[in-house]
Design a binder for these strands. Structure first.
Length: 285
DNA sequence: AAGAGCGCCAACCGCCAGGCA
DNA sequence: CTGCCTGGCGGTTGGCGCTCT
């Protein structure tokens, strides 16, 4: 038996939103904040499904949304991120300020696929095995620290084994948006970075202190397949007047980051440190 | 001028994870 | 532990508008 629909569709408006509906929704959200989407239509006087309201707000009405005119730089970033992440539009959108997952998805499907194919490039991600939707979603979910799959008893043990094998192939973990550190560094070498990564103490999934006892900010920590824990981050890189997202950057500690499986040092002595890291990252991909 | 074909994109749909009672 | 609710995600659809014939 399937789940009941999120709301009764009887008597509800569908299709394009009118300016009056937009106004009602905007006023309500600005007054009461986001959330409680199911109850929102009644309270706001809208004859819409709550889900529809959320979508309209997230993709169109929310302040700061940029529409159209995707720049060459943004396009380039989308291509690179897609190469790394596949169709994880929300993650890609998270690296493009003001852009929504829906817009990027549409732009990819209508412009970029065609453009890349015209250039003789078959647009497919490097790292993630794209499967049919159902499987890939399960894979993505199991990629996070916890999974409900086994809890809900929906998969057999064979399926579990297959999923574990799939997970082992995936290098890119689901990140949470947190800021990167740019702490000081003195005598770092690649070797010391590599060795430092194994010295991190992890307590209950959250790193507390590094080797030197320096207090680190609490954040989202994930465990790599090689039992190494790393701080997942997607820092913004400033290039000129624009902020760009990089790929998944795992902050090993205050001074070191891991981008796409390779270690980098962060040093205050390098004024354009992040830009250099970004350049190296670009070369990698 | 009009109809067909096509591309774009807003909106919808189904599914799933996490929270909570 | 179980089931329901909510929010969020990615895939798909359908209508509108533009271009071509």
């Amino acid at each position: 038996m399937g789940k009941a629909p999120c709301c009764s569709k009887v008597g509800l408006h569908r299709g394009p939103w009118s300016s009056k509906e937009d106004m009602l929704l905007t006023n309500y959200v600005q007054t009461h904040g986001e959330g409680q989407w199911r109850a929102l239509p009644n309270k706001a006087g809208l004859l819409r499904c709550g889900k529809s309201c959320r979508l309209r707000w997230m993709n169109y009405l929310r302040p700061g949304i940029k529409r159209g005119n995707i720049s060459i730089d943004e396009e380039d970033l989308i291509v690179r991120l897609h190469k790394l992440l596949g169709n994880r539009w929300s993650l890609i959108a998270g690296r493009l300020p003001g852009r929504t997952d829906n817009e990027i998805k549409n732009y990819w499907n209508t412009h970029l696929i065609k453009k890349l194919r015209d250039e003789g490039i078959e647009p497919k991600p490097d790292k993630i095995i794209i499967k049919k939707r159902k499987d890939s979603k399960k894979k993505d979910r199991t990629d996070s620290v916890t999974s409900n799959a086994s809890k809900k008893n929906k998969v057999s043990s064979d399926e579990e084994m297959n999923k574990k094998e799939e997970v082992a192939k995936i290098k890119v973990l689901v990140p949470k948006a947190i800021r990167v550190f740019s702490g000081s560094s003195s005598n770092n070498t690649v070797d010391s970075v590599l060795s430092s990564s194994s010295s991190i103490e992890v307590n209950d999934g959250k790193l507390e202190k590094n080797e030197e006892g320096v207090e680190l900010e609490e954040g989202s920590w994930s465990k790599f397949d090689n039992n190494e824990y790393s701080y997942i981050d997607w820092p913004l890189i400033e290039l000129g007047d624009t902020n760009y997202g990089t790929g998944p950057m795992y902050c090993v500690d205050n001074d070191h980051v891991l981008i796409d499986g390779c270690h980098f040092m962060l040093e205050d002595s390098m004024p354009n440190m992040l830009e250099q890291v970004y350049d190296e990252y670009l070369q990698l991909i």
